[in-house]
Structure formats: C-alpha cells, structure tokens
C-alpha cells in the first residue's frame, strides 16, 4: 500500500523552500473571471479564439499529459490531444456548467478519445499481454512526482486507497482498460472490480473534497 519512493518524494516536497515555491506556482484561489476555465469556455462557445488560447495555456499540460500517459506515444498523443482540443472548440456550446467543470469536461473528451484510440489500435488480447509485463501505472505516478501542491494532494489521496482500489482505478484511467480487462489482468471477479472502481473513486472524491 505504501510505496517507498513515494515517501521520499514527499519529504523533499515538504521542505520549507519547496513549500514557498509550491504556493507561488499554485493557481490563484481567488476566482478571477479572466482566468476561470468555466468563464473562458463560455466565451469559447461564443467563438472567442483568445479565450480558447487562454484555456489552452491553462489546461494543455494536464490534457496532453493525460493523453500521453494513455496512448504512450508522443506523436500519437499530440494528434489525439489536438483532436480533443478541436472537438472542445467545436462543441463548446454543449458545455453545461451545471453538470461539471470546464476542466473536467475537456479532460473527459480527451480521455475518451485517448481510450478510443488505444482500444482501436490494438486487439484487447495484445494489450493485456503487454500489460502483464508492464509496470503498474502507480510507478509512473511516483516517478513523475512534482512539486505542485495539487499533485501532492492527489497523490496523498491515492495513497489512501486500498491496493485493489488503486490498481483498478489507475489501470483504467491511465491505461485505458475496461473493467473487464482489469478484472482479467488482476484475476479478480468482475463485480469486485466494478465495485472497487466505484468505492475507490468515492474515497478519492471525499479525500479531495470534490463537489459537483
């Protein structure tokens, strides 16, 4: 459940120097309409290209990084990220803030596209074979430990999951596996995997203090 490399990374981040850096690099907690992604996306829906560029600048590292992690090939990641971003532009008017944040909406588009791509690129059996010899995705998370406080919080909350919850959630999200594939991969019954994905996310939600 605990990862040795993880503890080390966090100790470093907790030092006073990196703490100060952390706070400066974290987004302004005050809602600033000029930077608020929801406001920007509303402007995008009215055809505002400058708002789209501003949204790109805020969101692209997360969006591209997410796609890259799923498709695992930089050229393909660039292509998929572009498709997703253009789709977000095209369908911005369909964004409904009542149903979630702009960031989540755009990342959902990108994740879906990335997952569609890996699932169509490779037969499921091939992917499963590959996965059997691949590192578990949590290692990637640790490897890419960064100093941003949000990431710290996410990582702390991921640590708070049971091992099975964590594996189920991360294999699905970062590798694009269906819960069937995760079940096969971990040799755990299908209903258990389904349930662990749900209660794992609920625990993450509560830990992160996410509200709809």
């Amino acid at each position: 459940m605990t990862n040795p490399g993880d503890g080390e990374a966090r100790t470093t981040d907790m030092s006073p120097v990196s703490r100060g850096r952390l706070y400066r690099s974290s987004p302004d907690p005050e809602p600033d309409p000029a930077r608020d992604p929801n406001e920007l996306l509303k402007r995008v829906a009215r055809g505002d290209e400058a708002a789209f560029a501003a949204l790109y600048d805020q969101l692209s590292p997360r969006l591209y990084g997410l796609v890259l992690r799923v498709v695992r090939d930089p050229a393909m990641a660039e292509e998929v990220a572009q498709e997703a971003l253009v789709e977000a532009w095209r369908s911005a008017a369909r964004f409904d803030p009542a149903k979630g944040s702009a960031v989540s909406w755009m990342l959902t588009i990108a994740h879906r596209r990335a997952v569609d791509r890996v699932r169509s690129e490779q037969a499921a059996s091939t992917r499963l074979r590959k996965a059997a010899t691949a590192d578990v995705p949590y290692d990637d998370v640790v490897e890419q430990a960064t100093s941003r406080i949000e990431r710290q919080q996410v990582r702390r909350c991921i640590d708070g999951l049971t091992e099975l919850q964590r594996e189920a959630v991360l294999l699905a999200y970062y590798r694009g596996y269906t819960y069937r594939e995760v079940s096969e991969l971990l040799d755990i019954p299908l209903p258990t995997i389904k349930t662990r994905m749900r209660d794992g996310l609920i625990r993450l939600r509560d830990c992160l203090g996410v509200t709809a």
Binding site: A53, S60, R62, Y64, R69, S104, R155, I158
Partner: peptide, 24 residues
C-alpha cells in the same frame, strides 16, 4: 457521476507534461 468525473479529472494533475510547442 458528475462528482466522480470531477474526481477522475484530478488524477490528470499528476500526469501533467508540457506539450510540444508545435501543438499550440
């Protein structure tokens, strides 16, 4: 689902990578 989607999106925080400049 909308809460879980928001939660899932936070996982992308840990994946952030600067995209190639050509993408922009």
């Amino acid at each position: 689902v909308s809460e879980l989607r928001e939660t899932v999106s936070r996982l992308a925080d840990t994946a952030a990578v600067e995209p190639p400049p050509s993408l922009r």
